[in-house]
Design a protein around this nucleic acid. Structure first.
Lengths: 215, 215
DNA sequence: CGGGTTATTGAATGATATCAACTTACGTGG
DNA sequence: CCACGTAAGTTGATATCATTCAATAACCCG
């Protein structure tokens, strides 16, 4: 299959400082982004300022692909983040002639949709503990997919981000981390390191349907 | 642009009775569906049976497009529902040769993603009243897009469905309907008819960002 | 080191869930 | 066409989980 990032295309680079935006909700859709390093949070706001984080994006992820004429969500750097970007029109003009690329793009949006559906279940039906358990398992699975070394995973986002992602408050997130530590479900190292020390219990909490991968 | 439903393709028909499934969560992905008449609810369940409805689909909507090897959600008829379906492999084999069709499909999934994001904000950040206000405005906009006649809109789903969609309980949904009626925000006719009698107030409740379309 | 941001912890409050009783609506068959 | 039986909706009382408010503690960056 053809590589997504063709050499023919004029990708440009941007380095985003923490809290800097790649784009804001409502901006005209100009660019499609690819994260090179660091982390972005994608979020939607209500008119009174409440913020729902709809996803975290890291190395290799494509952002802004699903925008119409304007971005429906904002994209903000959590830590210093490098992105590559390309004008959407140019990108789609190229993709139009490449069925494999179009199908790849289709698959990327489908994957995002699936993530959104998972998050809907978490926020809509899981209580705070269940949500956190589900998040931790997802975070670990994601780290594994990216070939992370060691069993500590890195969670670069703040508790407040996690709260805005899971539909909770930062205090609740903090309480549950403390509680999980006491119960021996996780071990924490520094601000961002977490290790899952009882996956079975976390899985039971998350109430997922059993899959073949479960020991 | 080429029509999505080419005559070359072998669509078949199914008539679903109320509560009958087009497919279940976990089924092998065989078919892509198009709703001809009636309504489907799409939902995800947790292992203990809690159900999150992720969307309602009606005439003209495509369902199952985003499935991988298995469906990640179930699709169940609310009322008697007619669907057309086609094997996914056949459909994509056809689409591969038609960039316009691929781009159309891409757009459909992007629209679903956008809906999922909206619902995330509703469930994650809006309280019960705000959620209901937002839902009613969306339902009306959707009906208008489909060229519904009259100002009563039809909500074919049960209160329990609405509850499972918005992250509430059926009791709460009922209380808020009653409250909205008392406050003159809506008028109800029969089991399924609703008319919005104070859009301004509903919009204020929903706390959306103002758009050009707002009077 | 120092200052601001973030995290933790406790106590009180509040929104929505839960439980329960009752009413209404609907569809089915007599 | 009506009566019945079941499913759905309403309403009230209570319980509960998570939020809110507040005060302290830890962390990190410059």
């Amino acid at each position: 299959m053809k590589k997504l990032r063709s050499k023919d295309l004029s990708w440009s680079r941007r380095r985003l400082a923490p809290r800097q935006h790649a784009f804001l909700q409502g901006d005209d859709n100009g660019q499609i982004y690819r994260v090179q390093s660091g982390y972005l949070r994608l979020y939607v706001t209500l008119s009174d300022g409440r913020r729902q984080i709809i996803g975290f994006k890291s190395t290799g992820d494509i952002v802004g692909l699903d925008a119409g004429s304007t971005y429906r969500y904002g994209a903000q750097a959590i830590s210093t983040t490098e992105v590559h970007c390309i004008p959407a029109t140019e990108f789609f003009a190229f993709a139009r002639g490449e069925p494999d690329v179009l199908i790849k793009l289709f698959g990327l949006v489908c994957a995002d949709l699936s993530l959104a559906h998972d998050l809907l279940v978490t926020i809509g039906k899981r209580d705070a503990e269940e949500s956190m358990a589900s998040f931790l398992l997802d975070a670990e699975a994601r780290a594994a997919e990216r070939g992370a070394k060691g069993d500590f995973i890195s969670l670069p986002m703040l508790h407040g981000d996690l709260a805005d992602y899971l539909g909770l408050t930062s205090e609740t997130v903090s309480r549950i981390f403390t509680n999980f530590k006491k119960r021996g479900l996780i071990e924490v190292r520094g601000r961002h390191g977490v290790r899952l020390t009882n996956r079975r219990a976390l899985r039971a909490l998350a109430k997922r349907h059993p899959s073949k991968r479960d020991e």
